[in-house]
Simulated scan of single mutants.
Amino acid sequence: MENKCTDINNLLEKLSLEGFSGYEFVDYWDADTMAVGMKKGNVLIYISAYDYSKTNGYDVIMEEFETGIILKSEYKRSYHELINDLLYFLK
């Protein structure tokens, strides 16, 4: 994505190789260059690379799109932990 930081663009590249289906990348946070979203059905997943260069971890918030109810919130997740989180919601 043109307006996103290198860490997010690298993540998007890696995620595109994971074989998830039925989701779309969304960007409801134009001003946040360190975040991107994934949406499938009524689930919205916010992924932030803030502090990634220091922690090698992503912050993840998964919520119901229509209600905003938080389904899961995790911080400083490694790439493999992030994939496991995504598998549960994107299966």
Results as ranks from 00 to 15, higher is better:
25 F>N: 00
3 N>F: 09
33 T>G: 02
42 N>Y: 01
63 E>N: 06
57 G>T: 02
31 A>V: 11
43 V>T: 15
26 V>Q: 05
13 E>K: 14
40 K>T: 02
7 D>R: 02
51 D>S: 12
17 L>P: 01
59 D>T: 13
20 F>L: 08
89 F>C: 08
56 N>A: 03
17 L>Y: 13
2 E>Q: 12
62 M>K: 06
5 C>V: 13
73 S>V: 01
8 I>A: 02
4 K>H: 01
81 E>P: 07
16 S>V: 03
20 F>V: 01
28 Y>K: 12
55 T>P: 10
84 N>L: 14
58 Y>C: 00
83 I>L: 14
51 D>V: 05
20 F>H: 06
43 V>W: 00
81 E>G: 08
58 Y>A: 02
90 L>H: 03
31 A>K: 14
66 E>G: 04
46 Y>L: 07
82 L>M: 14
3 N>S: 10
10 N>P: 03
56 N>Y: 09
91 K>Q: 15
88 Y>V: 14
90 L>A: 10
46 Y>K: 07
77 R>Y: 06
35 A>G: 00
12 L>P: 04
77 R>E: 14
40 K>Q: 14
30 D>N: 12
21 S>N: 06
50 Y>N: 09
61 I>V: 15
4 K>L: 11
79 Y>E: 11
91 K>R: 15
37 G>W: 04
54 K>D: 11
27 D>K: 03
47 I>P: 09
85 D>S: 15
29 W>A: 02
73 S>D: 14
48 S>R: 09
60 V>F: 05
83 I>Y: 09
2 E>S: 13
58 Y>W: 09
55 T>A: 02
33 T>D: 10
78 S>T: 15
23 Y>V: 02
59 D>H: 10
17 L>N: 15
46 Y>C: 08
17 L>C: 12
64 E>P: 08
61 I>E: 13
45 I>A: 07
